[in-house]
Amino acid sequence: MKQLLILSGKGGTGKTTIASAFIKLATAKAYADCDVDAPNLHLVNEWKTEPKKRDYYGLPRAEINDELCTGCDLCRQNCRFDAISKAEKYMIDPFSCEGCGVCEYICPAQAIKMVPSVDGELMLYSDVEKAFSTAQLKMGSGTSGLLVTEVKKQLKSVNVGAQLAIIDGSPGIGCPVIASLNGVDMVLIVAEPSLSGISDMERIIKTAAKFGTKTVVCINKYDTNLEITEQIEEFCRRHDLPLVGMIPFDFEAVKAINNGQTIVDIDCASGTAVKEVYQRTMESFA
């Protein structure tokens, strides 16, 4: 199974809108949403069935047993994350705790235990023909790299005989993106013509280059700033990155999304453009 990953660097460039159109055009049998912080792909898919859900456990968190605690304060003094506070009793802030286990180790009264903690939820939609893997990280949790890996593993766990998997990546350049890049065959970058978009795109291309993954670029909402669109084209030429198409800003796209449709479900300018992007991406993929 070949994997196509769609990335953007900056959020809000239309990555999910394009991913959902690609899934439709490819009649993809396997797809995943690796944007575990704010997944959106499930909002535009056609699953009628409920997904199979399971809890995702990240790093364990500390818990204090008040009955055993002698109030020696060693845990608070040794916690580097300021996660332990003292009022009437000692409390652990689960959102600051990074699960290192120092407090458990240092406690002379064995009053602290590291306990598994639910950091998110994995969801798998599947039937005999196709599979969709997604997840939602719990607020404030910080182990999304592992969760991204789990999302991809979950997709592979269903055998639907798919030749191609389309993966909606996460924004940014950090850990979840690096996890989503692992093992993919090609990356499509959705760029947006803004100065912020350019600097983010450069960072994501550097990240992808480190992995040596084949990368192509498309420009979304290209007509909102033609000057910067030209700069992106120039950037692609300079770095030998194939530019596989440009998609205009389109009010109809917003309407389609709000109706739970993809932009290729209706007749609109952005839909026509994305079809070409799809064609050319697949040609570069072959």
Binding site: G11, G12, D37, A38, M139, G140, S141, G142, V254, G260
Partner: peptide, 27 residues
């Protein structure tokens, strides 16, 4: 930072007020 992970929490801990910016779509 965008999202709702631990770095976002860190950035709002000290705030007196939060402004949430949203787009008018189902996303």
């Amino acid at each position: 930072p965008p999202g709702s992970a631990c770095n976002v929490m860190e950035s709002v801990k000290e705030a007196d007020y939060c402004i949430l910016v949203a787009e008018p779509t189902i996303f």
